[in-house]
């Protein structure tokens, strides 16, 4: 399979007036096409920094971040989904979904059709002209996901997109999002501190150390073909969970 993303010995320092924070330490990994990769690590280890590097919002202090083999990152290939839904209250659901299209100058007719289709497919078509304030938390995140998918990104970045939701909504939305991503044949990187969520969604998990972030372990999962909710009942789920839990606890003890 094709390699979409490659980190090659990436280092990153945050500069402040009195300090230089070493956030990313010689990080190398890759992500293949159609793969769902999760990045887990202790809180504050620099997970969001990694996503910002991928999205081209930050540039590495040294090393290479390559998207489709190029270090010059084309932001149009990337869809970023945030912890909060970031919907604009003053725009209708439809206007929110087509926000990214408004910013482009190319012909977007085909993508508008895709937007309509996605809304219908994920039961939001009746809310097309409503304001986001009349939607539930789960629906809002689904709208945010569609807003991202409409731009047809090659690579989806998910920054703890479920953490602001209640438990039940969260599990259901995990299933939905997983389903959507697999159906639309997207490559995705999920950043989370929820181990169970990572195991239930991913093909591969990258475990990071605490700051500065290094790759501590890379685990390929053998749970394909089940929904995230079903995976939680799988016999091997517990084994994976304990392995990652052990690694993270170990990491926190050492600090």
């Amino acid at each position: 399979m094709n390699e979409i993303l490659k980190f090659e010995n990436v280092n990153y320092f945050y500069q402040t007036k009195d300090d230089e924070i070493f956030a990313i330490d010689n990080l190398s990994f890759n992500v293949l096409e159609n793969e769902f990769v999760s990045i887990v690590g202790p809180s504050g280890c620099g997970k969001t920094t990694i996503l910002s590097l991928i999205a081209g919002l930050l540039s590495p202090s040294s090393g290479k971040v390559m998207l489709d083999g190029s270090t010059k990152i084309d932001r149009r290939k990337i869809g970023y989904m945030f912890q909060r839904d970031m919907l604009f209250d003053w725009r209708s659901v439809w206007k929110n979904i087509t926000l990214g299209l408004e910013l482009k100058k190319e012909d977007v007719k085909k993508k508008l059709e895709l937007a309509e289709e996605l809304l219908k497919k994920y039961n939001l078509y009746n809310f097309k002209n409503k304001k986001p304030s009349s939607l539930s938390g789960g629906m809002r995140q689904r709208v945010a996901l569609i807003r991202t998918l409409v731009l047809e990104p090659r690579l989806l970045l998910l920054d703890e997109p479920f953490s602001a939701l209640d438990y039940q909504t969260r599990l259901n939305l995990c299933d939905d999002v997983y389903d959507i991503i697999k159906k639309e044949k997207k490559t995705a990187i999920l950043v989370t501190h929820d181990i169970a969520e990572a195991i239930s969604m991913s093909d591969k998990i990258i475990v990071l150390s605490s700051r500065p972030a290094r790759v501590k372990d890379e685990i390929t999962l053998n749970l394909a073909g089940k929904t995230p909710l079903k995976k939680r009942d799988d016999d091997s789920f517990r084994g994976y969970f304990e392995k990652i839990w052990g690694e993270l606890t170990n990491e926190e003890k050492n600090n």
């Binding site: 919002l57 945030f82 926000l99 990214g100 910013l103």
Partner: peptide, 29 residues
């Protein structure tokens, strides 16, 4: 203005004028 929303527009490759026009001005109505 919400930094996250600015980041969202940046991730959508928006330029500064678009950030002003689509986000900053309507958000401050």
């Amino acid at each position: 203005c919400d930094e996250g929303k600015i980041l969202l527009l940046k991730s959508m490759n928006a330029n500064k004028f678009q950030i002003l026009w689509k986000l900053i001005l309507p958000a401050s109505m």
